[in-house]
Write a protein that binds this DNA or RNA. Sequence first.
DNA 1: CTGAAAGCGCTTACAG
DNA 2: CTGAAAGCGCTTACAG
Lengths: 336, 336
Amino acid sequence: MQHVTIKEIAKALNLSFSTVSRSLNDNYQISEKTKTLVRDYASSVNYIPNLAAKTLKTGISNSIAVVVPFLSSPFFVDFFEEITMLFSKTDYNVILLQTFNNPIKECEALDVAIQNRVAAIIISPVHDDSNCSKLAYIQKQVCPVVLFDRTNHRLETHKIGVRHEREIAIAAKQLLKQGCKNILLLCCKGIGANDARIAGIRSAFLGKQEPDYSWAVVEIEYNHPNEDLKKQLLRPLKEQKEGLCYDGIIATTDTLTTKVLPLLLTDEGMLADCAQVIGFSNTAYARILNPTWTVFTQPSRQMAIKCYETILELINYRRLQINPAYNTVFLDVIPG
Amino acid sequence: MQHVTIKEIAKALNLSFSTVSRSLNDNYQISEKTKTLVRDYASSVNYIPNLAAKTLKTGISNSIAVVVPFLSSPFFVDFFEEITMLFSKTDYNVILLQTFNNPIKECEALDVAIQNRVAAIIISPVHDDSNCSKLAYIQKQVCPVVLFDRTNHRLETHKIGVRHEREIAIAAKQLLKQGCKNILLLCCKGIGANDARIAGIRSAFLGKQEPDYSWAVVEIEYNHPNEDLKKQLLRPLKEQKEGLCYDGIIATTDTLTTKVLPLLLTDEGMLADCAQVIGFSNTAYARILNPTWTVFTQPSRQMAIKCYETILELINYRRLQINPAYNTVFLDVIPG
DNA sequence: CTGAAAGCGCTTACAG
DNA sequence: CTGAAAGCGCTTACAG
């Protein structure tokens, strides 16, 4: 099929195609009159630029890769929705890539990003050192990389996240204040942030001695969020201290809050009936599930905004060949 | 930055770059020996093809555009997840575009698809005749288009959906059998399928006379699913027949089932306490929200599989310049 | 089975 | 302010 090209516009307007190209790119050298002429004609013939040609010539496409574990978590859906809206006001468009928490798929996703000559990568990596050398290579040789959410990754770059230790400490202290004595911390298995989270609950229990007080951590594996979580959850719980009944629970992720927790609560024996719950979640369902729960919301949209700003800055720096000084920005969880 | 190119591989192996290109594309003309040589060397130097060059040359990229209203609905997340997995086993990768049920954004999304010279478009359109001429143009001049979910769209092509009339009739009959007499049908406003859905509930009520039996429809607007739905919902309800108390509810979409319905149930007076509910939803939360609900699941993953197969077929047909005979495939809702 | 050559549609130094 | 020309990295007829 034949699309309208710059060449055809040039011929129709009796201009060189360099001039047409410059006009469409709003080049300062071209007179307003010519620009208007070209733009009006281009839109009248419904000119749609061939991005492949531009990408081939410049070496950089106008795509931004957003690499996330999966979309089954509302946190990532929110983040993606927000960042898509932000970039939709620019010339960039967003390519979404999912890793399903699998380093091999992450590697493939990064290859797709390179193949497409993306202008930048925004990634929530699989774990602390997944595809480290590849990401370092990309950052050095291909395009800027920004990490979000899982900021413990070893790559040195701008990172945008939350202070997991602090947030969990706040949650745990709140439960203790409400009278809880035995607190269960539910984590997703193999996530780098877990160390910080455990440090958080430990710090909240400083000075609270056994046997009056206790806390425990259960790590649940849900690489693909549609797995059967119940068995996983109950096995370690049953192996743990017999007779103990947790009266406070902290669920650290959206999946844990909305899927795992209801399983735990409907099941027999592991929890006090009046167990108090703080769940981290980005879905309105979380509150509906049980109105007495306290829901802490991850600042997904704020993170998207910060990622967006950071990426534009890094792209600009790279164009100007300025080396940025990388730093990590922490945003506050929104307590319920 | 310098990526490895075909030219460099050719030079290193003392071959022409046509041969290298053919080897990498597994061309039948090339000897296995040469192919192996080239492939091994290419992977040893970590060759990553420049898709922009290929796209420019061939006029078609290896991207497939998936255009959906939004991802806040688990139906679309499921669909997208499935179709991404399917295409990840091919050379195609999937570009996700969101319209937020806005025809203008849909138009922009289609422009992005054209700019990227996508190989095909899979779309759940905004409404029955949104961007009709553009889609027809695309189908004729650019690439195959397949419609899913919202199959009432006027474009003539392969369509994959569900029989809304039939599904709602089944749901309504089930409620009637369970003893319901006044059924409320909750629909998303402005969706083409609503006519069929209303026909469905009407057919279920054939022979059931007022004043003993009645049914009503409420259309809720939630273009952007994070809106305040409660007010919208209660206004038309209050204007409706005073004193009437619905004892059966059918929620036709995921958002209605998981967000709107809980609001309705927690609010005073509009519903019998023992109201029976059938909700269409693709999230496990739906059952957790209230174990007594009956949940009908849209066949999102089956639709993805069918779309995937259809698209590959259409791409192939187009390459062979065969004109396909378009048809519509209906998949069954999975009753709870 | 392999090679030489044209060309996809842009951008951008270079020249004027 | 505008134009002529090179070239980005591939694919693919054409030739042998």
